[in-house]
């Protein structure tokens, strides 16, 4: 009898712990707090890397200048350092110009400039973290843009950082429209630099190389932001809907500054 009691207690504890774990996993608040757990240390590590990069580039320049003529040494060092500074400024200027161009294009929208500080630790998820959160006015569902193209949507918002689901992720789903013909479709991520238009009826006018862009139908978000270019249209035998493949502009290896378009 005692054994049965013990087993029942163990079974009870097991079920209670499973319920507690599920409550943990499916509570939105904890999710938002956990974003800050990654965001804050990542921001710190990022700034250290940035500083180290600056120091290492300084020493590299110094080393190469020692090999030069002694008379030109000082002058060269200053020039090279200045040159590098100009190069850095030029790059930053170019990035900021793109941001400004986007800002002018979409004057009515509230725009927040953010920096990418980390990527998803899980290889099966295509997401990244940015250094702005609810304190800066970021909301769940805001679009994230880089170089003028849509690259993701804010999914979880912490106090100082947020998590963005990229357009390539299989769980990224929005309503889009084609720029030339204005056909409304359903977009879903597919993998590396790829997306797909789902449920495209045969009578819909979908053209090769047409741009797919956001539409106002999608929960009153900003319309006209390009998502990708149509790269392949095919029809499978026996299937009603067309198969439309879209090439996206999300490239995780060169992400630095992004724009959050707030609703």
């Amino acid at each position: 009898m005692d054994n049965v009691k013990k087993r029942l207690i163990k079974l009870g504890i097991f079920f209670v712990s499973i319920v507690v774990i599920f409550v943990f996993l499916f509570s939105g608040k904890l999710k938002n707090i956990s974003v800050d757990f990654i965001g804050v240390p990542s921001n710190f590590i990022y700034s250290i890397f940035h500083r180290l990069e600056e120091i290492s580039s300084f020493f590299k320049d110094k080393k190469s200048l020692y090999q030069e003529n002694e008379k030109l040494k000082k002058e060269l060092e200053i020039l090279k350092l200045e040159n590098q500074k100009v190069f850095q400024l030029e790059k930053e200027n170019e990035e900021l110009r793109k941001v400004l161009q986007f800002k002018n294009q979409y004057m009515s929208a509230k725009i927040i400039v953010a920096r990418v500080i980390a990527f998803s630790p899980d290889n099966w998820v295509n997401s990244f973290f940015i250094d702005v959160g609810s304190k800066d006015g970021v909301k769940e569902g805001d679009f994230v843009v880089a170089g003028g193209y849509l690259i993701g949507m804010v999914k979880s918002v912490g106090l100082n950082s947020s998590e963005v689901l990229s357009v390539n992720d299989e769980n990224f789903k929005i309503t889009v429209r084609t720029r030339k013909t204005g056909e409304i479709c359903f977009y879903s991520g597919l993998g590396y630099k790829k997306g797909v238009l789902k449920y495209v009826r045969p009578e819909q006018d979908i053209r090769f190389s047409d741009i797919v862009e956001t539409t106002i139908l999608d929960m009153n978000r900003l319309e006209g932001i390009p998502v990708g270019i149509i790269k392949k249209i095919s029809t499978k035998e026996g299937e009603f809907f067309k198969e439309v493949e879209v090439e996206t502009f999300y490239y995780p290896y060169s992400l630095d500054y992004v724009i959050v378009v707030s609703r």
């Binding site: 990654i38 990542s42 890397f49 990527f119 290889n123 973290f129 590396y192 060169s254």
Partner: peptide, 18 residues
């Protein structure tokens, strides 16, 4: 987990899988 999610792997090393 923090190290795994660092930009170093994708931004500097350009790794597809972390």
């Amino acid at each position: 987990v923090v190290i795994q999610s660092n930009v170093f792997f994708k931004g500097v090393l350009k790794l597809f899988i972390v």
